[in-house]
Structure formats: structure tokens, C-alpha cells
Write a protein that binds this DNA or RNA. Structure first.
Lengths: 220, 220
DNA sequence: GTCTATATGCGGATAGAC
DNA sequence: GTCTATCCGCATATAGAC
């Protein structure tokens, strides 16, 4: 059954890539974990790298679609006014964590894989990853800019980078922390709420003095 | 000259590990970049992994020492009162970025390597990395706890995770962004200030409702 | 679509001359 | 301390039978 094989490979690859990283996960590891033949990966995907791209797309697309849906709704009901910053942050962070909450036991490495995508260092791979985020980046940056009119565009961009950093680091390590550290037990929902509080406050931080008064003039 | 060879290897390894990641950087890459013989790595360090540990220590130790120094001074001059949150954040973020500002052209990959350390996924390697942060973690968590007495310890720990995330992601990507994105030009100093503003506001965010009222009772 | 067998290359590590 | 030559294993990928 071809479809089944393909799915099994995608699932196993997601788990192992998340856990160990892309370069150190061999196709033998993947096919063994998936219970399929070694040659199946090249037959179905063409190469190891093409498999990675497929896994990334499968993982990211629904999440990013949900993000845009939520942002669409927020903007549709705001009556032309800027959407509150915290709501934008929530629309950005909810989708990945929601899936974590729901199918935690089903797909335990989903979140970690998502976090790993943001930290991938290989130049070529990274280029293929970030193009998946082009629309997200534009839409959310624009929304943040409207909700934070006192900030210059540059400032918004850097704060979005900080936000993504706190998110991806949390996605990468939250499960290990919960699994090993008894003192820091929290439900996924609580972690998400804590992260939203942190990130929203960060986005809404007072306008930095230096950036306002020293660098003046050119706005974009 | 042995010492020189050792230094050259450490420098080249730092650059390449930062740029491409540990697993995909071969010893041949390193020795070629350093202009030394292939066998020199094993002679001086014993193995590729031991070399990585050496690079990590060389990179992290001065940074963490500076962090503790700054925190010591803050606490010594606070007269027993809690140190303001923003000052603690500053003591944590200043040292790595300061080195970036100073020797930017000298050691252009220093910051990226530092960021990569926090994102490393391999279990064994990560264990060796985080033990370098034990003291830092304890001291800064305690300081934050004193400056934010309304937060439960769990909450402080998670917020520190968010803080580290925004920091490491910024360290990993700041240079690429500055190098490629004309619209988001900023001096290292400005980026540091922006990050401090963001992180301090996040740490000082209002106590989350759910964590306060739903999870009650046990504090550690 | 699935499998076995294999081509081909690169990886870390080391033996032993200098 | 430094270098050459080499061992040996594992990686991806594919050819070709079923």
C-alpha cells in the first residue's frame, strides 16, 4: 500500500528529525522506524532532502493556515481598528500549541520539530524553510505595526524576531522539561498562556529611548 | 608551534560550527580552514567531539564569568533590596553582545556559535553544554525571583526559558539579518537595547490569570 | 510498489615515518 | 609536534529482479 508507506515514512521522519536533528538521522534510521524498505524513501520522495522538505510542508502548512484564519477573523471583527497586540500574539502562538495540547500523545514530537525548523542553520535548507513563512511574516508584521503605531517598522521587525525566538525555543524544549523536571510541571495550556503574557508584554514594551532619539528620520 | 596550531583549530572550528552546525562540519573542513594537518585535531584534542567541548568552553566561560560579575556588583550595591528586573536582564544579555560589538570584525561568528549552543538537539552534547550554565541559571533565577516576588518559582523558570529563547534566536540570526536585509539595519548596540526592552517587559508582565487562580497552593 | 545487492564517496580515527 | 597513507564503517543513492 503506497499511501500508507508514504505516511509511515513522513511520520517516522518527523519524529527522528525532531529528536536528533536532520543531518544525524540516516535513511536507515527512518525506514527502520517506519517499518519500510530502505529504497522506499528514494522511490517516494526522490532524496533525503526532498523528504525533509515534504515533512516540513506537512507540518507547517496547517499551522500557518490556522494562524492566518485567526488573524483574518480578528481583523474582520475589529471594525477597522487595530487589533489589540495580545490578540495578534495569541493568533500567532495558538495554532502550534493547540495541536500540541490536542494530540500530545499521538504526535509527541510535532512541536519539537516545529521548533527545530526555526533553528536550522544550513543555508540552503533554511532558504526553503523560510519561504513557507513569507505570508505569515508580512501579515503579522503589518498587524503588529497597526497595533503599535508608535514603533518604527524596524523596531517591529526585531521584536517579531524576539517573539519567534521565545516561541521556537519553547517549542523545542518544553516537552523535555515537562518530562524530566518535576519542579516545573505545567499543562501545555498554562505554558502557552505564560508565553503569550511574556510575548505580548514584550511587544508592547515602551519605545526604547535610543532608537527613538538617536536614530531619527528615515522610516523605511 | 603547538599553541598556535591549537588556537588556529579552535578558531576555525568556532567559525565553521557556527555557520554550518556541528554534524555537517568535517575535520577536513576544519583543518583546511585552519591551515593545519588533518591529524592535528586528534593529536591536540583527542576527537572531534572533544574539540567541540573545548570550543564551547572557550566561548562560554568568559561570557558567563562576566554575567556573574555584573550580577555580583548589582547585588552588592542594592543594599539588600531586590535588583530591578531590567538590570538583571541587562547583566544577562550585556556580556555576549558586548563582545559582539567590540570584536565584530575579529570574531564575526562568535555570537552565532553562542546561539547555536542553546539550540543543539543532540542529547549527549546538550548535557555537556547545559552543565556550563548551572551556576548562571541558579543565580539569575534567584535574582529574578527576588525582583518579581509575586511570581511563583515555576513561572519565573518558564519566563527565563522565554528570555533565553529570544536571546539565542537573536544571537543566531542577527548577523545574517544585518548582512542581508537593508531595511532592518541596526547597530549591535541598538539590537541589544531593543532586546533588553522586550525581555524586561516580558519578565515583568502581569501575573497570568490562569496560573494564579486555577493552579493554586503548592509553591515548589 | 517493494525488495536485494551494490556502487561510490566521505566520515573519523590512527599507525608510523620524520 | 607534524605529516602521509590508510583502515574501516556508514552514508546516500540506484540498478535491476520480483
Amino acid at each position: 500500500m503506497a499511501t500508507n508507506t508514504k505516511e509511515r515514512i513522513l511520520g517516522a521522519a518527523e519524529q527522528l528529525f525532531a529528536d536528533r536533528g536532520f543531518p544525524v538521522t540516516s535513511m536507515r534510521d527512518i525506514t527502520q522506524e517506519a517499518g519500510v524498505n530502505l529504497a522506499a524513501v528514494n522511490y517516494h520522495f526522490g532524496s533525503k532532502e526532498a523528504l525533509l522538505i515534504a515533512v516540513v510542508k506537512r507540518t507547517i502548512e496547517p499551522v500557518n493556515r490556522a494562524r492566518l484564519d485567526q488573524l483574518d477573523k480578528l481583523e474582520a471583527t475589529s471594525g477597522g481598528l487595530p487589533v489589540p497586540t495580545e490578540h495578534i500574539v495569541r493568533a500567532f502562538l495558538n495554532p502550534p500549541f493547540k495541536k500540541w495540547c490536542e494530540c500530545g500523545r499521538n504526535d509527541p514530537k510535532f512541536l519539537k520539530f516545529l521548533g527545530r525548523i526555526h533553528a536550522e542553520v544550513d543555508q540552503e535548507l533554511r532558504a526553503k524553510f523560510i519561504e513557507q513563512f513569507d505570508t505569515i511574516d508580512q501579515r503579522f508584521s503589518a498587524a503588529f505595526q497597526r497595533s503599535l503605531p508608535d514603533l518604527k517598522p524596524v523596531e517591529v521587525h526585531w521584536r517579531v524576531l524576539f517573539l519567534v525566538g521565545s516561541m521556537s525555543h519553547t517549542m523545542t524544549w518544553a516537552e523535555s522539561i515537562i518530562a524530566t523536571d518535576d519542579q516545573n510541571q505545567r499543562d501545555p495550556e498554562e505554558i502557552l498562556e505564560a508565553l503569550i503574557q511574556f510575548a505580548a508584554a514584550g511587544m508592547e514594551a515602551p519605545v526604547p529611548k535610543q532608537a527613538t532619539f538617536i536614530t531619527g528620520g528615515v522610516v523605511r
